[in-house]
Design a protein around this nucleic acid. Sequence first.
DNA 1: CTAACTGCAAACCCTTTGCAGTCCG
DNA 2: CGGACTGCAAAGGGTTTGCAGTTAG
Lengths: 138, 138
Amino acid sequence: METSSSRYLADRLRAIGVPVTLQRLEIARVMLSRPVHLSAEQLLAKVRDTVPETSRATVYNTLRLFREKNLVKELIVDPERVVYDSNVEPHYHLYDVDTGELTDVAAEELHVVGVPSLPAHVELEQVDVIIRVRGKRV
Amino acid sequence: METSSSRYLADRLRAIGVPVTLQRLEIARVMLSRPVHLSAEQLLAKVRDTVPETSRATVYNTLRLFREKNLVKELIVDPERVVYDSNVEPHYHLYDVDTGELTDVAAEELHVVGVPSLPAHVELEQVDVIIRVRGKRV
DNA sequence: CTAACTGCAAACCCTTTGCAGTCCG
DNA sequence: CGGACTGCAAAGGGTTTGCAGTTAG
């Protein structure tokens, strides 16, 4: 499947009511063609490689839009920056605190047992699991 | 046990090689007398209630020091701010994304099954579980 | 023609830092 | 005395916003 073609991506955006622009198409190409973990700044750099007429504001605006449309998920693993994940299916993460590298852990591999019953007035939104690892100390 | 007396806290700081000052003692009283979740700014406000001659820089310096000494743990649940947790024992969290309220979930209640085997060059630092909830939509 | 999108730059918030003054051992 | 701690204010980095110009339907 040609998931990375402009045609496919443009249709996908239109299908969810997102007007297609050059910048959004390119942001979609970088973020949505395959599972990636990118910060806003990293995304901006990649998008500017091919579409230099892209501003920081547009990247942030588009990320917010994509998040609202459930095309990407925010990962909060580091106080320094937010990371955007193009895998919106339930899954977990392994995070190397030294390198910043993020790896997906499939929901089939890992299970959270014993989630407490919730107060009546709240509902579950999502369960985050972050397995923090670091390079071995010698 | 008088865990909140100045005497006890001062001794506790000295025991781990932290020179005792008025500000540190007060920060310790607010943070360490009982399990709390506080942001730096919230902590500053509480400390200034009793010791107004406390600067923001001192709060941040002291939080870093306390973290290095394993008196508090950083919680990364919200991109807006870091929350400090005076419960340094392994445990998990329930987070209300609407109110910002954080609740501890004891390690005995909840288990993470299936943590993947780690690459040889890294070691496990910690497993974070954040159960995100929100007020029920009507 | 109107509404929506974009770019730029400045504003904003949280956190850290430089520096001078102060205190404790 | 010397090293460490403190306060102030300014710097720093990531994110958001105001506004004017442009584009698409």
